[in-house]
Design a protein around this nucleic acid. Structure first.
Length: 896
RNA sequence: GCCCGCUUAGCUCAGUGGUAGAGCACUCGCUUCACACGCGAGGGGUCAGUAGUUCGAAUCUACUAGCGGGCACCA
């Protein structure tokens, strides 16, 4: 058997994925157990334009860990992949391509343009699905979905019609967020508020029939051309006389009223507000309250309209601003301009300043839907957010303050709104044009040109992908899904909307739990972003350290934000190499042996201490990892596995079992020991598999005896693979506290001897005698039973155990738990002063602890109020310290 | 303005009422027959500060400071 000394991730990553996929291991149909419980996750569909970034890698790792784990537990498991059509992004990407050919989408026309987008999608879209294969993601590609596919588009239309029939979707003319660059309306969630250094302009409006003037403060002077009132607070004494007065709006000559409205804050600015109902959301509301006219002075391209007056028509909004200010100054009506910091609304995608415009759009009423989600939380505490703090509150607070959702978009790529207009302007909402014609009784219909917000189809994802509204087997089996794994940035955009739509349509929550992952920041603590160019490409990390090392590092991140630290990946790369070499050792000593799970179950009590110990540790590890995963405590699961594999298995078990497995003679004992070793390794590989699928499969395939008999019974008949074996389970009867205690005393003894060797500068090759004295019979038996092991590991010439230590004066000494003592005779090598000093240091430590314990036990309040168990624990500890200090004192005396 | 989180070893982070943990970095010693991506032994922290609750606080409460996030906003 020729196994390289260093693990080569690329080699292992080459073949397994294709095999897993081809064998159908990722599909739930692989599970032959008709009574298997179901586990399902739908992937947050990445944009069809996207490529893999660290956030994906993080989320996919968590999802894959859960999916592989549940699959190994025998669940009928589905992780459903797919992509989002990403309306604006995709349209822009294809438009940019066209631009290179000197064309715009309008040159092609809608139909040709959409064809072009599909062509782009087939040729270059979905790059991310190839990258996901590299990640090892065990998604069921046979169920891959795309939001623009006909099957999902059908669901979109169905939902739209039902919501419309229920009065939850309506068409209306309202003030909306308009992006002058993308030429579409946006929902409130797609608008970001950026702080901005700007100016506050104080403009004076003269009264009509007096010399009085009223001063208003504004950040947007150009909108004054559309003012239709000035508002003051009804309780503001300064303006009592002017309420109801008429003002002459400068530059236009229009007459506008002074109105009283509670909205106005007398403390801010001058306490008088210009009201522009057509260009400001708050003014719009005021306009509704006071029935003010709306004069549109800015158009969809952010240019001034005819209604802005001949001097301004056609001007860009910022040029108009300058001109308005200039004119006010000439007229002596510009009171002052002050620096002012405020926040400005920008298009999240292109960063263009949003123009609030009045526009006819489609809206989704959220009150009823919101209540469905809030009731679900109040009644069933679903979905269960992990971590619960702060996300549950963030989610419910947002729902409580929810406003209607603008769902139409002025784009071509997306689900065209299933609404048709007759010549007379009647609106027909239907599932298809044919149905619309039937409803309308005419063929002369025009479909609404707008498409739906991309997030509309995303909101339906958990059930649209499973076949709703049909009662498909997938829907019955996998809905509600088990858990949603995602980042906190789309809790509102996506998570909440899925809950509302899930409750409204299938009538059940779309997922039981929501696990919110942390965020990987750059090394300076900044968010990774394309514009900052500070992103770390997961593919490059895969190339450098291997997929498995990257995955287990990402899994260990869990739900907190962490700074990217390549050293961490490197340490898990080293871990992978450790696994590789541990397996290498096992395989080099595997002749005649094979993996045999029964070897770790039957007759365990007859085995040597280190065997009973590792079996106990294995079962505790299985228990702890399962518990950690049940609570989505990924970090803890990783730490448990790392510690078990490296410390328990490699550092101790392999060392202790060497004597058993290395012998030249092919004895039955050697064969049994080798099989045990292989089996412990095999169990450890299974535990690690969800985190590190490639290396575990690569090694598992090489283990003698790793065959179909090891598969979980739900997967009988499948070709052998570690991914379909049983996930190790904790058998309580195999947890052996006694063995763990005994092993710990042996480990402590070995550590003390090593410490002496190191501190006394004993040459590594030099064999020294080790003398152990233990009055306690049980301790003595443990040491006596393991003298060969101890001698081999600490390179002792002999290990002798007696009930009382008698060692030459020139010895290095140490005391152990239970008052046991050990000595390493060092005739001619020992520096007595140094040795006394070493022992005194130890004594000081013990004394310090003893006095702390004494003080605590002397406190009657403690003894009275602390749990008895705790008090006993302290007393026992104190007894142990007393034994040790007594032994130390004797030792020191002997050295005088 | 409202809400929330974080502050633990030089660095990146776990721990969440009962004797401070990991990885990396650091020091010393090792070509010990799986692994130098390794082995062994060490050093290093009044757990941001203050005040409380408690027999006992890194852990709970309040406040303070610094950093970060979300939501809503004032024209």
């Amino acid at each position: 058997m020729d196994i390289p000394k260093t693990y080569d991730p690329k080699q292992a990553e080459q073949h397994h994925y294709a095999r897993w996929e081809q064998q159908g291991y990722f599909a739930p149909e692989i599970n032959q157990d008709p009574n298997a419980p179901a586990f399902s996750i739908v992937i947050p569909p990445p944009n069809v334009t996207g490529s893999l970034h660290m956030g994906h890698a993080l989320q996919h790792t968590m999802m894959d860990v859960l999916t592989r784990y549940k699959r190994m537990c025998g669940y009928r498991t589905l992780w459903l992949p797919g992509m989002d059509h990403a309306g604006i992004s995709t349209q822009l990407m294809v438009s940019r391509e066209l631009k290179k050919e000197g064309l715009t989408r309008h040159d092609l026309g809608r139909e040709k343009f959409v064809e072009r987008v599909w062509k782009w999608k087939h040729e270059s879209g979905g790059w991310i699905t190839k990258q996901m294969r590299r990640e090892g993601a065990s998604v069921d590609w046979s169920r891959e979905r795309f939001t623009m596919a006909e099957s999902l588009s059908r669901v979109v239309r169905e939902v739209f019609v039902r919501l419309y029939d229920d009065g939850l979707i309506y068409r209306g003319k309202r003030i909306v967020n308009w992006c002058p660059n993308d030429q579409t309306v946006l929902s409130d969630l797609e608008v970001q508020k950026d702080p901005q250094q700007g100016k506050l302009y104080y403009l004076q409006y003269p009264a009509k029939n007096s010399t009085a003037r009223i001063t208003v403060a504004t950040t947007r002077p150009e909108t004054m051309l559309g003012d239709t009132a000035v508002a003051v607070n009804p309780n503001d004494g300064r303006y009592r006389d002017l309420a109801g007065a008429t003002l002459l709006l400068p530059l236009t000559g229009r007459e506008i009223p002074v109105i009283a409205d509670e909205f106005v804050d007398p403390e801010f600015g001058t306490g008088a507000v210009k009201v522009t109902p057509a260009h400001d959301p708050n003014d719009y509301d005021m306009g509704v309250r006071h029935d003010l006219p709306r004069i549109v002075v800015i158009d969809q391209h952010a240019k001034m309209t005819e209604d802005a007056g001949a001097d301004f028509a056609g001007l860009d909004r910022y040029k108009a601003r300058a001109k308005v200010v200039e004119t006010f100054e000439e007229l002596g009506l510009l009171e002052k301009v002050v620096d002012y910091e405020f926040s400005i609304s920008k298009c999240e995608r292109c960063k263009t300043v949003i123009e609030p415009l009045i526009s006819t759009q489609w809206f989704c009423r959220m009150d009823q839907l919101r209540d469905l989600a809030l009731e679900l939380m109040a009644r069933d505490k679903k979905p269960q957010f992990v971590p619960e703090v702060p996300y549950e509150k963030v989610y419910t607070n947002w729902l409580e303050n929810l406003r209607d959702w603008t769902i139409s978009r002025q784009l071509w790529w997306g689900h065209q709104i299933p609404a048709w207009y007759t010549k007379d302007g009647d609106v027909i909402v239907a599932r298809s044009e044919a149905e619309a014609r039937k409803k309308a009784g005419t063929d002369e219909l025009t479909q609404d040109p707008d498409v739906l917000d991309t997030w509309f189809s995303s909101a339906l994802w958990p059930f649209s992908t499973l076949g709703w509204p049909d009662e498909t087997n997938d829907l019955k089996t996998f809905y509600p899904t088990s858990v949603l794994v995602t980042g906190r940035d789309i809790i509102f955009l996506w998570v909440s909307r899925m809950v509302m739509m899930g409750m409204k349509f299938p009538g059940r929550e779309p997922f039981a739990d929501v696990f919110i992952t942390g965020t990987i920041l750059d090394k300076h603590g900044q968010r990774m972003s394309k514009t900052k160019m500070n992103g770390v490409d997961p593919l490059e990390v895969f190339d450098k350290y291997g997929v498995d090392a990257t995955r287990i590092m990402l899994a260990s991140v869990g739900s907190t934000d962490v700074r990217w630290n390549e050293k961490q990946v490197e340490s898990y790369r080293n871990f992978a190499n450790k696994i590789w070499n541990a397996a290498r050792f096992c395989l080099m000593n595997s002749e005649g042996a094979s993996v045999d799970p029964a070897a770790l179950k039957a007759g365990v009590s007859e085995l040597a201490l280190h065997d009973r110990w590792i079996i106990s540790r294995l079962h505790k590890t299985a228990r702890d990892v399962r518990n950690a995963l049940a609570g989505y405590q990924f970090h803890e699961a990783v730490q448990t596995l790392y510690h078990f594999f490296w410390d328990d298995f490699c550092d101790w078990y392999i060392e202790l079992t060497k004597a058993d497995v290395i012998g030249e003679e092919p004895t039955l004992q050697r064969k049994a020991a080798r099989s045990r070793l292989l089996t412990v390794l095999e169990q450890a590989l299974r535990l690690l598999h969800p985190f590190m699928p490639y290396i575990t499969e690569e090694l598992w395939q090489r283990l003698p005896g790793a065959d179909a008999s090891l598969l979980h019974q739900a997967y009988k008949g499948a070709a052998p693979t570690i991914m379909l074996t049983d996930y190790p389970e904790c058998a309580t009867e195999l947890i052996d506290e006694r063995a763990e205690w005994e092993m710990q005393t042996v480990i402590d003894l070995i550590s003390r001897v090593r410490n002496i060797r190191s501190e006394m500068n004993i040459k590594p090759g030099e064999r020294v005698p080790v003398l152990v004295g233990a009055a306690d019979e049980r301790l003595r038996a443990v040491f006596a039973g393991n003298t060969d092991q101890i001698a081999r590991i600490v390179r002792a010439s002999e290990v002798s155990v007696s009930n009382q230590l008698s060692a030459p004066r020139a010895s290095a000494r140490a005391v152990l738990a239970g008052g046991a003592e050990l000595a390493v005779p060092l005739e001619g090598l020992i520096d007595f002063d140094q040795e006394r000093e070493r022992l005194r240091r130890e004594q000081d430590k013990l004394n310090a602890e003893a006095s702390r314990l004494d003080a605590q036990l002397a406190n009657p309040q403690f003894v009275k109020r602390a749990p008895a168990e705790k008090v006993n624990e302290l007393r026992e500890r104190l007894v142990d310290i007393a034994q040790r200090t007594a032994a130390l004192a004797q030792t020191l005396e002997a050295l005088q």
